[in-house]
Amino acid sequence: MMETVEPPVTPNPNETPTAQALVNPKPSLMERLQAFITRYGMLAVAVHYAIFGLCLGVFALLIRSGFQWEGASGAAGTFAGAYAACQLIKIPRFAATFALTPLLDKLIRRLRNKGPASSDGPPPA
């Protein structure tokens, strides 16, 4: 006996969306940024400025040691050239901030919860 093949079912545009589609809409980029800042706060700011300072220092050392930079930033002073180079890598710096901050938060929380009593086993009753 042969089975009948039915065509694929396409959703009707007049139907209301399912409850699952209404419950989990993807948050906007601004909502995700606000949630990130709300969760990590000053840690995120500190991580961002630490990465900026590190990049600024590295570029200043490279320019000071004779690294030839093409363009107007090469003719400017060491700090101005390093700052311009830091601005060129702004997007990767933000990406590094978003990647490293949760890892540092976990590390800090783990170190704060670790104490001499936690390694001894369960507390006496």
Rank of each mutant, 00 (worst) to 15 (best):
M2C: 13
E3Q: 04
T4D: 11
P11Y: 02
P11H: 11
P11A: 06
P11C: 01
N12K: 08
N14M: 07
N14K: 04
N14A: 14
N14I: 00
N14V: 05
E15F: 08
T16Q: 08
P17A: 06
T18Q: 11
Q20M: 07
A21R: 09
V23L: 13
V23K: 08
V23F: 09
P25W: 09
P27E: 01
S28D: 10
S28Q: 05
S28V: 00
L29K: 04
L29N: 07
L29R: 06
L29M: 09
M30F: 12
E31Y: 06
E31V: 03
L33E: 01
A35V: 08
I37V: 12
I37L: 12
T38Y: 12
M42T: 13
L43I: 14
L43H: 03
L43W: 00
A44G: 01
V45P: 06
V47T: 04
H48E: 00
I51L: 12
I51E: 11
F52Y: 10
G53T: 10
C55T: 04
G57H: 03
V58T: 04
V58K: 11
V58I: 14
V58G: 12
V58Q: 12
F59A: 10
F59W: 02
A60Y: 05
A60L: 05
L61T: 07
I63G: 03
R64P: 00
S65W: 00
G66S: 02
G66Y: 03
F67L: 15
Q68K: 11
G71N: 03
A72H: 07
S73T: 14
S73E: 12
S73F: 13
G74M: 05
A75F: 00
A76Q: 13
T78V: 15
T78H: 09
T78M: 02
A80Q: 15
A80T: 15
G81Y: 09
A82H: 05
A82M: 07
A84F: 14
A85C: 07
C86M: 09
C86G: 07
Q87I: 15
I89S: 01
I89D: 06
K90A: 09
K90F: 15
K90I: 07
K90G: 10
I91T: 15
P92K: 06
P92A: 05
R93T: 08
F94A: 07
A95P: 01
T97R: 02
T97P: 02
T97S: 02
T97A: 00
F98R: 05
F98C: 07
A99P: 10
L100A: 11
P102S: 03
P102M: 14
L103R: 13
L104P: 10
L104N: 15
L104G: 04
D105N: 03
D105V: 04
D105Q: 02
L107A: 15
R109H: 13
R109Y: 01
R109W: 02
R110D: 08
R110W: 10
L111W: 07
L111E: 10
L111C: 12
K114T: 14
K114L: 10
K114Y: 09
A117L: 13
S119M: 11
S119A: 15
S119D: 15
S119G: 14
D120T: 12
D120V: 07
P122N: 11
P123N: 04
P123E: 02
P123A: 13
P123V: 03
P124T: 06
P124A: 08
A125P: 13
